[in-house]
């Protein structure tokens, strides 16, 4: 009696609770994967039935925090520097630099930044172009754990697997086997915890000239993704750009944004004023 069985019924209600909190969807084949994460937590909290543990997450005053921790342990934080870098370059060169030249201070939001490699890549590109100080960078994720790592500027070696030449030594250096990003880059980003499925939290962030929402919609069901895309659309300034992952497409969701190609990179653009 040291491991707890997860029936399809309990799987369904737990998965629904997790989906409601984070948007992340679990298919029936993920039952064991979920059980692996949930069972030790349930046992540790003193429960010997997963249904009891579910009621704890759902109703106990301490349940909400425990659910956050559980969700955090389930999130996939896979990311690396200069992942799908072309759209970031095009965004910086074709849109952000001209905006700065025009005397504006554009705002960019990396909306599922994981451990920070994506916004820091953009920061490196902007620094290279000499406009880092003129662009406002916000980066957020649901995972408190990932954000904590991002704020330290410390990464792991796997995050360097697509690093172009000239970055190491200039924008980051590896000490004792740990890549560290230059503090001024880490400091140029405003790191926050934001849940993308919480439309009111998104609305509070103001409007942006560009939003990066890459490799996260894939974890959501269509309805959830549609909801997230529409709150992101509301958070775009007129002519603002939404960037999704190269393998993702908004076509399925019938978005109000227009798909636009620039030098091989794709953007979803909001109509002008």
């Amino acid at each position: 009696m040291f491991s707890l069985p997860m029936s399809p019924q309990v799987f369904a209600i737990l998965a629904a609770l997790i989906e409601q909190r984070s948007g992340v969807h679990y298919a029936p084949e993920d039952r064991e994967l979920l059980a692996d994460k949930v069972v030790p937590r349930a046992l540790d909290a003193g429960f010997d039935s997963l249904l009891d543990y579910y009621y704890f997450l759902r109703y106990d005053p301490a349940g909400s925090e425990a659910l956050d921790a559980l969700v955090d342990s389930l999130l996939v934080h896979e990311t690396y520097f200069f992942r799908e870098a072309l759209p970031l370059r095009v965004l910086a060169e074709d849109l952000l630099v001209p905006a700065v030249r025009a005397g504006r201070r554009p705002r960019v939001w990396s909306a599922a930044c994981s451990t920070g490699e994506e916004p820091l890549t953009l920061a490196m590109i902007l620094a290279e172009l000499g406009v880092l100080d003129e662009v406002e960078l916000l980066a957020s994720d649901l995972s408190a754990r990932a954000l904590e790592r991002a704020r330290t500027g410390e990464h792991n070696l796997r995050s360097l697997r697509a690093l172009p030449p000239g970055v190491e030594g200039r924008w980051l250096e590896t000490r004792e086997g740990r890549p560290r990003v230059r503090p001024e880059l880490v400091g140029a980003v405003d790191w926050r915890r934001v849940n993308l499925v919480d439309a009111s939290a998104v609305a509070q962030l103001g409007t942006f000239d560009a939003i990066l929402c890459r490799n996260v919609l894939i974890y959501f069901q269509d309805d959830t993704a549609r909801g997230v895309v529409s709150s992101l659309t509301r958070a775009l300034a007129p002519e603002g750009r939404l960037l999704v992952g190269t393998s993702e497409s908004l076509m399925r969701f019938g978005t109000a944004l227009a798909c636009e190609e620039r030098r091989g990179a794709f953007f979803y653009t909001k109509a002008g004023p």
């Binding site: 399809p8 799987f11 369904a12 998965a15 298919a27 029936p28 084949e29």
Partner: peptide, 10 residues
């Protein structure tokens, strides 16, 4: 819903 579908087949 895929969970319902899969359970029904089961």
């Amino acid at each position: 819903d895929d969970s319902v579908r899969s359970a029904a087949v089961g």
